[in-house]
Amino acid sequence: MSESALSRVNLFDSRADHASVAVESPLAYSWQRSGAPAPSAASRVVLREQTFLGHLILRGGAIVLDEALREVLDIGLPGRPNTLSWDVSGERSIQWLSPDEWLLIVPGGEAFAVERRLRERLADASFAIVDVSGGQTLLTLEGEAVPELLMKSVVYDVDPSHFPVGKGVNTVFAKATVIVRRSGETRWELVVRRSFADYCYRWLLDAGEEYAIGVER
């Protein structure tokens, strides 16, 4: 049964895993163009790109997806809107995007296998999985001035007292859109679309100047 279910979609591993293939993250051009100021003792924000992670969009009913996800990755689906949860290792996260849509982020190279296992587990249920790994990137922002920096950039209320760890929202960032997530006391994440990544990066460098923003590469 699962074989026939699998055949009704095109399961395609778009990852090229050989040393001979050069790979470029969405910020590759930005490093060239805008550089990356080194973090200093004065840096109140430090930015880092978490490159080449697996990004999967899951669509479907919460109950079936939750069961499958627990089985495959041992993470429960966050039920509440605008929240996310991590597996024990902290390397895999699942975020609520809408009542029938979640963003699963896994270490690079896992996406295809995870998709296949989820599809096998979900079989004939009503669901969809889409690999968007090439289309977005994850930036981490760490430091005590991150909320200040974000207040200059996003319309959503990012006051730490109102944006607990484990919250994540899709919102307006400058004139683009990003997903903002808080993954620790002073650690935040932005999920940025590839084509907007350079704009967002330049915006962050500019808005972060007063906090001596540094970039770890």
Binding site: P81, N82, S98, P99, V155, Y156, V169, T171, V172
Partner: peptide, 12 residues
């Protein structure tokens, strides 16, 4: 009504 919170007009 889906996100269950108040959001800014720019998002709509």
């Amino acid at each position: 009504p889906y996100c269950e919170e108040l959001r800014e007009e720019e998002e709509f």
